[in-house]
Amino acid sequence: MSANLIPILWESTLQTLYMVALSTLLGTLIGAPLGIFLATSRRGELLSSPVLNTVLGLAVNAARSTPFIILVVAIIPLTRLIAGTSIGTTAAIVPLTIASAPFIARLIETAIREVDAGLIEAARAMGAAPFQIVRKVLIPEAMPGIILGLTLAVVSLIGYSAMVGAVGGGGLGDLGIRYGYQRFMPEVMLAVVVILILLVQAVQSCGEWIASRFDKRAPRNRGR
């Protein structure tokens, strides 16, 4: 591989990191409250509002069933409205966020539903208000699951970010297609794949380590 490709690889890696980091952050800001609400708003639950729960559940499912590449193209007007342009790395964050938010919402919903109903009952018996139960019981108890869910979301976003080259988003995936495939430079393709593997590996290990720090359920964490 010629030396002049190194800066391009580096730049693409930074673009990927930038897109993934921002869209994870924004996706979590939207997805976390949504997931918490979905987990607690069925009939008879803490924030019982079955109609809103059903409507939001349908919206989440709709967003999740749209193939990402179609989503990217379909929401170009919205992207232009939010980012001022529909092309470029920053613009790509809009579809990435819109794809990640419902995914993160479902992951957080699942993690919160894993919390033993007995804990909710105990908190209610203490006189806790629904919001206190969410803040002091559900979120802390679901934390290991939430962290692992977010790890999964980041890994998925790394994959999605490869597709935003279609709207000039840049990043590693785009580099792999343009140089590796279209210009017949297999060494670039290989480099891109290796960097992606390392990225995913690092994210996964990091997520698992953080989750284990939060997880006090097993005695192996004795004397942390």
């Binding site: 105990a122 018996a125 203490m126 806790a128 208000a129 802390p140 934390m143 006090k216």
Partner: peptide, 22 residues
């Protein structure tokens, strides 16, 4: 007012219902 009443009534459980994270 139910929440206020509950603070005057403690409860213990068969499966303890302690927070694992605390």
């Amino acid at each position: 007012s139910l929440r206020a009443i509950r603070r005057e009534v403690g409860m213990i459980f068969q499966h303890f219902n302690l927070l694992a994270s605390r």
